[in-house]
Amino acid sequence: MHIVDGALSNPVVIAGAVAAVGGIALGLRSLTLERIPAAGVLSASFFVASLIHVPIGPSSVHLILNGLAGLLLGFAAFPALFVGLLLQAVFFGFGGLTVLGVNTVNIALPAVLAWMVFGRLIGRGSPVQGAVWGGVGGAFAIAATTGMVAVSLAMSGDEFLPAAKLVFFAHVPVMAIEAVLTGFAILLARKVKPELFVKGLPA
C-alpha cells in the first residue's frame, strides 16, 4: 500500500504533504498531554499489528487496520499513523521520504472518515451489532485507502492507470479480511471492556 519516491508527479506530492500537515495539526489539537500515553501505545500497537501476516490461500497479507485505528483514536489517528509511517520509512526502508505526506493522507484520512461515519454506531446496541458496524468501517477504510492510492497514481500520469486499477482489485480480498478482523476485534473489546466505546478513550 505504500507508494515509493519517484512515482508520483510533483503536484500530487506537494498536495499530499500540505494535506498531511493539516490533518496532523488537527489531530494534535485533539491530543492533550493526558491522552498522549494512550495515543502512543495505540500507535505502537498498530505498528505491531502491521507485522502480523494473515494467510489467504497460498499467499498472505499483512494487516493495515487503519479503520480500527480511526475508530479508536478519532482525529488523533492522523498523527499516530504518521508516526508509524515515519518509523517504517526510516528504520525499515518501507515507503519513501517525499511521499510521506501522500502516504499519511491515504492511510489516515480514511481512518478519520471511518470514525466520523461509524464511530458512534460501534458503541450502540448489542456487541454483535457494534462488531458488524466495526467490520463495515474496517472494509470502508481499506477500500478508501486503496481508492486514494489508485487516484494518486492515476493523477500522476495516465500510464499508471492500469497499475492503479490492478492495485484496487488486488485489494478486494484484503478488504474482506480487514473487515472480518476489525469486526472480531471490536466484538472482543465490546465484551471485555464495554466502557471503551461508551466514553471513548481514557482522557
Binding site: 495505540l42 500497537s45 469486526g183 466484538l187 472482543l188 473489546a189 471485555v192 471492556k193 471503551l196 478513550l201
Partner: peptide, 12 residues
C-alpha cells in the same frame, strides 16, 4: 481478530 482486539484492550 480476537488477538488484535486483546492486544488493543491490553494496550489501553
Amino acid at each position: 481478530g480476537y488477538l488484535v482486539g486483546m492486544m488493543l484492550v491490553r494496550a489501553i
